Simulated scan of single mutants.
Amino acid sequence: MLNNILMGIQLVLAIFLMLVIMPQEGKGNFSSDFSGGGDEATQTYFKPRGKQAFLLKSTKIVSALFFINALALLVANK
């Protein structure tokens, strides 16, 4: 019974983790790293704002919950 509940939670967390990771933008490409400065090079040092900040925080929280639930599943199966 407990295994089924934890497995259902794991499935929901896995789906939510995919939904949170997929819309995130990448860190950039190599061409902007070697472009010699400009606006693009200076923006990499600033913290993400708005949607990106929310997605980053959500990814950290959901991935921690996913890991904790996986450990709980491991303990419950013993």
Rank of each mutant, 00 (worst) to 15 (best):
N3K: 14
N3I: 14
N4C: 03
I5G: 00
L6C: 05
L6D: 02
G8A: 12
G8Y: 06
I9M: 11
Q10P: 00
Q10N: 13
Q10R: 09
L11C: 10
L11E: 09
L11V: 12
V12R: 07
V12Y: 04
A14P: 00
F16M: 12
L17D: 02
M18A: 15
L19Q: 07
L19N: 08
V20L: 11
V20F: 03
I21D: 00
M22H: 07
P23M: 04
P23H: 04
P23E: 07
P23A: 06
Q24R: 15
Q24W: 01
E25F: 04
E25Q: 15
G26S: 15
G26Y: 07
K27T: 13
G28F: 03
N29I: 09
F30M: 12
S31W: 12
S31T: 14
S32Q: 15
D33H: 06
D33A: 10
F34S: 07
F34L: 10
S35K: 14
S35Y: 03
G36C: 02
G36E: 01
G37F: 01
G37R: 00
G37I: 00
D39L: 12
E40Q: 12
A41G: 04
A41C: 04
T42Y: 06
T42E: 14
T42L: 08
Q43Y: 05
Q43E: 14
Q43I: 07
T44L: 03
Y45R: 10
F46W: 09
F46Q: 13
K47H: 08
K47I: 11
G50P: 02
K51Q: 12
K51I: 10
Q52L: 08
Q52R: 12
F54W: 13
F54Y: 11
L55D: 02
L56S: 11
K57W: 11
K57R: 10
S58T: 09
T59N: 07
V62A: 06
V62G: 00
V62Y: 00
A64M: 10
A64W: 08
F66R: 00
F66M: 13
F67C: 11
I68N: 01
I68K: 01
I68L: 15
I68R: 00
N69K: 01
N69P: 00
